[in-house]
Amino acid sequence: MDIEDIITEVCDGGIILIRYNKPKKKNALNLNMYRRVIDILQEASRDDNVGVVVLTGTGDFYSSGNDLTAAFNYEGVYDLYPVLRDFIRAFIEFPKILVAIVNGPAIGIAATTLPLCDLVFASENSYFYTPFTKLGIVAEGCSSFTFSRIMGERKALEMLLFNYKMPAIEALQCGFVNELYKPEELQHKVWDKIIEVTNMKRESLIESKKLIRGQIKDHLLEINDKELKTVNDMHPLKKIGKSKL
């Protein structure tokens, strides 16, 4: 694995930065990148020195989602789905504050996992795109539940069924992101906000998040399993072998 596909940085104030770092492929995520993020989130959840994890991308894309070319090259195509399940579970189960700095377009799983974050800051030039039906599959990342919950059923259907590409300003208006910034101001101004979070009482943040997110945690885990089982069953390479889900 090229470990530089995922860059991590320990920042002051108990912050871990995770950067998707494959700009030539628009930060598309492969199997090993998923595994690395899972490990980082699990380690951070156990580390008493960490209070916040931040996700962002290198270059002008947050992430173009699953690396489809890599998916078709796995020795066992079904190796992908258990890892996707654990990747999404890592977001759902992360007990501390999870922040996304969306520095450009977020596609597929990069978009669907954003509602599982606690704060989402985005560049004005970003957009959000979930072309699942165009690919012949179905929604994942718990988006079949979270999108409707955040933006209403009509807009969720437009995105998840009819491949609507949501611009950043509309994402702000419907509550999908917290704030927008000009591209050249994003990193500077967002980090001011993140530092504010680190100055809050950590135990209070964690317990408050547990009260709010805990009400739907088990439901999200169940939805994640159902979504990925359906995706797995519909995969165009299904005939290659038996599902591991």
Rank of each mutant, 00 (worst) to 15 (best):
P95F: 07
L80W: 13
N66C: 05
N103V: 10
I15N: 05
A111T: 15
I16H: 09
I16A: 03
Y34N: 07
D86C: 00
P105F: 00
I18P: 12
N49Q: 15
A106Q: 06
A100K: 06
T56Q: 13
S63E: 01
S45W: 04
T113H: 03
N103P: 08
S64V: 01
C11E: 15
A71F: 02
G104Y: 01
F87H: 09
G59L: 10
T58V: 05
P23I: 10
G65K: 03
V37K: 05
P115M: 14
R46H: 14
D79F: 01
G59K: 10
E43R: 11
E75H: 12
Y81E: 15
R46E: 15
I107Y: 02
G14A: 05
F94S: 08
V54M: 15
N30P: 00
V102N: 05
S64R: 01
T69Y: 06
A106N: 02
N49M: 05
L31N: 10
D67E: 11
G104V: 01
V99R: 14
N30L: 04
A70V: 08
P82I: 01
M33P: 08
Y74A: 02
I18V: 15
Q42T: 11
D60V: 08
L114D: 13
A110K: 03
F91Q: 12
K24W: 06
A110N: 05
F61T: 11
I107K: 02
I40N: 12
A71Y: 03
N30R: 07
D86G: 01
P105G: 05
D47Y: 03
P23H: 11
G59P: 06
L41A: 07
M33T: 07
N49P: 02
T56L: 06
D86I: 00
I109M: 07
T113K: 03
Q42K: 13
N73K: 12
T112F: 04
G76T: 15
I16E: 15
S64P: 00
Y81N: 13
G76W: 09
P95Y: 03
N21V: 06
A71T: 11
G76P: 00
T69P: 00
Y74F: 12
G59Y: 02
A90C: 13
P95L: 15
D12N: 14
L98W: 11
T58D: 14
A70N: 05
L84F: 05
L80P: 07
D86L: 06
L55N: 11
A70S: 11
R36Q: 12
I40Q: 09
R19H: 00
I92S: 07
E43S: 15
L29Y: 04
T113N: 13
D60P: 04
I18T: 08
Y74V: 09
R89F: 04
K25S: 06
L41Y: 01
L55G: 02
E93G: 02
I38Q: 10
N103E: 14
R89M: 06
L31I: 13
A28W: 01
D60W: 03
Y34R: 04
Y78A: 14
N103A: 03
